[in-house]
Design a protein around this nucleic acid. Structure first.
Lengths: 214, 214
DNA sequence: CCAACAGTACTGGACAGTACAGTTCTAGGC
DNA sequence: GCCTAGAACTGTACTGTCCAGTACTGTTGG
């Protein structure tokens, strides 16, 4: 008797229910916010009794924390990996452009935007989640960029005094335009992929114009 | 003499009470968020009866909207004015640096940060407020910058194809680093003024390295 | 004098978290 | 492969609290 609820076989019933709660609560929290999402709503949408929710998560705050930290982990990895391969570049301009496009495309995903909005909005109630998001999100990307840039500068492929500062400049040159617009104007106004690429290219271009030797 | 913030002079009683409500509600909304602030709290803190609140503002949403739009107006003006005087510059590097410092200092004010967090967090409930904040805030600054840059480019003081894009790059190069850190890590981690100036200087420097002729 | 105000109480609803009786699944021994 | 004890789960109801918005009576200030 192999039951499937959300394509999650081979798990105990408890684990399956737990996952259903996490999935559903994630959707609701990201869409409506922390206070506007009720535990009754979550239990109902997960097709689970309220008591099961409270068996898995001691209270609403715990559930919320687990969802935010989990989602941050999910989104955090791919970019950092791509950055790590940058120093091996033989065509820096092309590779920076590729990296910029990947970066913009990642951070502008609706799910990431929603998470960012949620964390910022609840920064007063959950300050540690804000810090976590920063460290695992932009912070991690910037650190990886700084390491890559330092290595490139050592081989005269870039000209810079402060790798960390250059990394911040690259990151925000590339992402800020669509990021800030979407943060405030909602996911409905997400620029189409071509426009996102143009922002990425222009940011990478400006970065190189500023940090390329000679 | 017809406009005051908290002083209780020269106004009708009704206007004074109205202002007290706006002041107090502003503080509470900015500190605790929309849902976590109750109308009873506001009435009590304003030393006013609940009925008076509802006489002045039809409901909680109206009060909230009025506060957000009002605060946006307050913060919006000074920067745009300073930008407008940029094209007359005889020493572009010095004036851009001064502008950058003023810009960072303005947008990093705790009150502005709190408003930004509030608007972003409530973007789902009040999408029109997000758009308003963008237009009157960063949007307005960027438009003014674009006009100034175009005029400077016409006199070969800058080299650029797309003034709007250059304006966005300047704006975010200068503000993004402290802005994003503070958005997520809270006002407690506001860099000291000297550090803010360093971010501003570095942003202006990078912009010029990229957009200065030759 | 009269509109605006204070104070208080009330309506109707929502929500976090708990309690409990009854049902269903799962694990482990045979 | 079958059976049973116990854990996990459901459904519902309940507690205590909070909140937006209204009603009403009496008071105050312009």
């Amino acid at each position: 008797m192999t039951e499937t609820t959300t394509a999650s076989d081979g798990q105990t019933r408890t684990a399956r229910k737990r996952q259903a709660i996490l999935d559903v609560a994630s959707t609701l929290f990201l869409r409506d916010g922390y206070l506007a999402t009720s535990m009754d709503q979550i239990a109902a949408a997960a097709a689970v009794s309220k008591q099961t929710v409270y068996k898995q998560f001691t209270d609403k705050q715990s559930l919320f924390r687990e969802i935010v930290t989990g989602t941050v982990e999910l989104v955090s990895d791919p970019v950092a990996r791509q950055v790590a391969s940058l120093p091996d570049s033989s065509d820096l301009e092309a590779d920076l452009q590729k990296l910029a496009r990947a970066l913009v495309s990642q951070v502008s995903q609706p799910r990431v935007m929603q998470l960012r909005r949620l964390v910022i909005g609840e920064a007063g109630r959950f300050p540690e989640l804000g810090r976590l998001f920063y460290q695992r999100g932009p912070g991690r990307t910037i650190d990886a960029l700084a390491a890559a840039f330092e290595s490139l500068a050592a081989r005269n492929q870039l000209r810079l005094d402060d790798p960390q500062l250059a990394a911040e400049h690259f990151n925000w040159l590339v992402t800020s335009i669509p990021l800030n617009r979407m943060m405030l104007c909602g996911d409905t106004e997400r620029p189409d992929p071509a426009a996102l690429d143009r922002y990425a290219d222009a940011g990478a271009q400006a970065f190189l114009a500023s940090y390329r030797p000679n």
